[in-house]
Design a protein around this nucleic acid. Structure first.
Lengths: 194, 194
DNA sequence: GTCTATACGATGATAGAC
DNA sequence: GTCTATCATCGTATAGAC
């Protein structure tokens, strides 16, 4: 039941009126993250977004344009994540590790999607991931002091992504909240010494 | 200079006479690891192996058969790696971390190749990687005692693979032998306590 | 602004010559 | 054992109707 007083084109981001453009990008990301780069064909994306192939190509003239759209949204999400990381009550390290765990988090899904594009030899996607790594690493280095400890934490986070992106979910190295807490405690012991 | 006394069909694994079958599997792995799953078409594989598409299809009736061939060789390589890990002079942990660094190592290359297949939704490839993880993890657990420390070491190794498989080489988190030594020292400090 | 129809290229696979 | 057609299928992209 749409609000009668709302102007026709008012943005209601998470509601039924989510713009076709956003629905298409969502569909593309979903197919990449949940299935594979090969599965994310124009036809499949269109079907999932509830538009026709022609309709999709009206919004994004080519598959490359679709990739650009995903990367643009990612840049914005990433900037926001860095903010959250800085403001996190338990500190950036804990925040970083927690958000590296596969979840329903939007950022997680986009990163897996972009990782799939990177594997399909898309240089823009690889660059975007490399940029993100640099940002996170510099945040980590700022708080842990030791350069090598910061890098080790990055590698652990990377490992979590790798696992969730590549392996059957049943094989997650970390299974529940207890595992996560233990890992964080372990890593903080690392950064506390030296 | 082939040994004159050798029977015509004697195996000379690394020499010019490397069987067509092996050359084809090598070419497939190379294309997967150095480029992408999409780049590893039957034609490209045949060209790199120095045979025609028809010639390739004589040895491997389908692309699926090609994947099976790679997975079979991987299983053998993996078993050998576990042996080496157990016998390593510096211990399994150091061995594991060192061999997780991107190099010209055969096993490395195969794993990246299989990771690419896994990303392309090949369930057999995902399973093979999950099996390998289980094996490594159980070796690590056997020596470090603490379950969580062993898992953390696995994650670090996974992170290294992820980086080498996905990002431009220039972005490696670990750059030289000094980095590696520092990381190993750091991790051994982890396993020494508790 | 969205859809249908169609062109075009590339890929996996088959049949059969040598 | 290896190669040369050749085919069917699918994915990207264009043109144009509604």
């Amino acid at each position: 039941m749409p609000s009668p007083a709302a102007p026709a084109s008012a943005a209601t981001p998470a509601a039924p009126t989510r713009s076709a453009r956003d629905r298409i990008l969502d569909a593309f990301e979903d197919l990449l993250a949940e299935q594979s780069e090969r599965a994310a064909t124009l036809e499949a994306v269109a079907a999932r977004a509830g538009v026709s192939k022609g309709g999709l190509l009206y919004h994004f003239a080519s598959k490359d344009a679709l990739v650009d759209g995903v990367l643009e949204r990612f840049a914005a999400d990433l900037a926001q994540d860095i903010e959250h990381m800085r403001a996190a009550p338990d500190g950036p390290v804990s925040y970083f590790l927690r958000t590296s765990i596969p979840s329903d988090n939007r950022l997680e899904r986009v990163i897996v999607a972009i990782a799939r594009l990177a594997q399909a030899s898309d240089a823009r996607a690889s660059d975007a991931l490399a940029d993100a790594q640099r940002l996170w690493l510099s945040e980590l280095e700022a708080v842990v002091g030791d350069r090598m400890v910061a890098r080790t934490i990055m590698l652990i986070g990377d490992g979590m992504y790798y696992n969730s992106a590549l392996l059957p979910a049943a094989n997650a190295v970390l299974r529940d909240e207890t595992d996560v807490q233990q890992l964080i405690a372990l890593v903080e012991r690392l950064s506390a010494r030296d």
